[in-house]
Amino acid sequence: MKRHAPATERNRDPIAAVLAEELPGEGVVLEIASGTGEHCAAFAARFPSLRWQPSDPDKDALASIAAWCADLPNVLLPLEIDASKDWPVASADAILCINMVHISPWAATLGLMAGAGQLLGSGAPLILYGPYRRRGVPTAPSNEQFELWLKDKSPEYGLRFVEDVSDVAAAQGLTLQRLVEMPANNLMLVYRHDA
């Protein structure tokens, strides 16, 4: 039942270090595209004052998330959410999305920003993690190879430009407040809802 993503063990501590600086002290963190559920389980254990709402569009992923998080009292039952469609969530105090933007159609990123724009209150964060491109900044050879692999899986997948993601975010009242360079040529992008 439990799925395993090897990268989770490598990136969860660096991600958690940024989350410690950006997440609110209490409230609900909605995770979009929770995947295996390993990140949610790790962060729920590390930040017990927060309630975690995992989600994923894939039924097998939902089962894995439930298995990983079964013993954590601050994790809500995972929701089936397709980022590109309407979300069955009334509110959130923060939104976290790890490794979705590059491995989903652009419509999912548009939906992510629309959902965040509707749910998040003033100053609440939308936090993204993954590989991105930046205009005028060379991309690592490993990311170039990864993009070829992504495009082979689907022509709709691929590394997005931070600038393009930020333009879509801005249209929903979300401003890029922080960009953090992470191990293995990844980035964390922290957007906050304008007042």
Results as ranks from 00 to 15, higher is better:
residue 74 N to E: 01
residue 74 N to Y: 04
residue 76 L to N: 11
residue 79 L to E: 07
residue 83 A to P: 08
residue 84 S to R: 14
residue 84 S to P: 08
residue 86 D to S: 08
residue 89 V to Y: 10
residue 90 A to W: 08
residue 97 C to S: 03
residue 97 C to P: 01
residue 97 C to I: 05
residue 101 V to E: 01
residue 102 H to V: 04
residue 103 I to S: 13
residue 103 I to V: 13
residue 106 W to E: 06
residue 107 A to L: 14
residue 107 A to F: 13
residue 108 A to D: 15
residue 109 T to V: 11
residue 110 L to C: 15
residue 110 L to G: 15
residue 111 G to T: 13
residue 111 G to M: 04
residue 112 L to G: 04
residue 113 M to Q: 03
residue 113 M to A: 09
residue 114 A to T: 02
residue 115 G to Y: 03
residue 115 G to T: 05
residue 116 A to K: 05
residue 117 G to V: 15
residue 120 L to P: 01
residue 120 L to M: 07
residue 121 G to M: 05
residue 121 G to L: 09
residue 121 G to C: 10
residue 125 P to D: 01
residue 125 P to I: 00
residue 126 L to T: 08
residue 127 I to P: 04
residue 127 I to S: 07
residue 128 L to Y: 06
residue 129 Y to H: 03
residue 131 P to T: 09
residue 131 P to Q: 09
residue 132 Y to S: 02
residue 133 R to A: 01
residue 133 R to D: 04
residue 133 R to G: 03
residue 133 R to H: 06
residue 134 R to E: 06
residue 135 R to K: 15
residue 135 R to T: 14
residue 137 V to Q: 05
residue 139 T to I: 10
residue 140 A to R: 12
residue 141 P to S: 09
residue 141 P to W: 10
residue 142 S to Q: 03
residue 143 N to Y: 04
residue 144 E to N: 07
residue 144 E to S: 10
residue 145 Q to W: 08
residue 149 W to L: 14
residue 150 L to F: 12
residue 151 K to M: 12
residue 152 D to N: 12
residue 154 S to H: 02
residue 154 S to I: 08
residue 154 S to M: 11
residue 155 P to R: 05
residue 156 E to H: 12
residue 156 E to T: 06
residue 159 L to Y: 03
residue 159 L to S: 02
residue 160 R to S: 06
residue 161 F to M: 01
residue 161 F to I: 03
residue 162 V to R: 13
residue 163 E to P: 06
residue 164 D to M: 11
residue 164 D to N: 09
residue 165 V to C: 07
